[in-house]
């Protein structure tokens, strides 16, 4: 699916390479060029963020944050040397990882009785099962089984799979982006493929049992 107002984008833009569109946007402030770039890559970028975060609202925020940064930084930070999409993916990846790290770091340490809510620390702990169920429902509604399986992979493996299969990013770049050695990136990919195979087998087994 393309942007709603993609009808206004001339056909010639669709045939242009990313780097030419980027050049048009940067030098001539051609907004149609940027819209075409968005048309091409928005689904993959959003899918990457969503598969990593597994929450639609947060994915929306991070997607918006990513493109706002892209728009503001394209004039000064981007040097047109590497692939534009790899640069955008780096921004999306960093925003996603920042969010995941913040989530991991967030712990409510206030153990005392809260007068306002009239509850203690343990009562205020979120019900993890209910959150899990809600997110699972969200995923089931909006994604294919393949994407669901990928979202069940550990974060490191998921990142490698998404970057490789959505963006055909070389393992060298994946290693740089995720700040690991190339062998670690290759190893994570291998484990991801093995884990996915197990998930496919289990799914297949379930289906055959139900029949």
């Amino acid at each position: 699916m393309r942007l709603k107002n993609s009808d206004h984008i001339p056909r010639s833009y669709e045939q242009m390479a990313d780097k030419d569109l980027v050049h048009l946007f940067r030098r001539k402030d051609d907004q149609l060029a940027f819209r075409e770039l968005m048309n091409r890559h928005q689904a993959k970028i959003y899918s990457y963020i969503f598969s990593m975060i597994q929450n639609r609202e947060t994915a929306n925020d991070i997607f918006q944050e990513t493109f706002t940064k892209v728009i503001t930084k394209m004039d000064d930070t981007y040097n047109e040397q590497g692939k534009w999409i790899a640069w955008v993916m780096r921004i999306a990846h960093n925003a996603t990882i920042d969010h995941i790290r913040k989530q991991k770091r967030f712990v409510d340490v206030k153990g005392s009785y809260d007068k306002e809510s009239k509850t203690d620390f343990y009562e205020r702990l979120p019900d993890e099962d209910s959150i899990g169920q809600q997110e699972k429902l969200e995923l089931e509604e909006s994604t294919s089984s393949l994407l669901k399986h990928i979202s069940n992979l550990p974060e490191e493996q998921r990142t490698v799979v998404m970057l490789r299969h959505y963006y055909e990013m070389p393992f060298k770049e994946i290693a740089e982006l995720t700040d690991v050695s190339i062998n670690t990136a290759l190893g994570r990919m291998r484990y991801a493929l093995i884990n996915l195979r197990k998930m496919f087998d289990e799914e297949h087994e379930k289906e055959s049992n139900s029949v």
């Binding site: 942007l3 689904a43 899918s47 918006q64 706002t68 909006s142 393949l146 299969h165 996915l196």
Partner: peptide
């Protein structure tokens, strides 16, 4: 199998807000 991985489109309102910032 992963080659057939599909994508999820971002909601229209999110895309529109990006275009507004543009």
């Amino acid at each position: 199998k992963l080659q057939d991985m599909d994508t999820i489109q971002p909601p229209d309102d999110v895309v529109n807000s990006v275009l507004r910032s543009l």
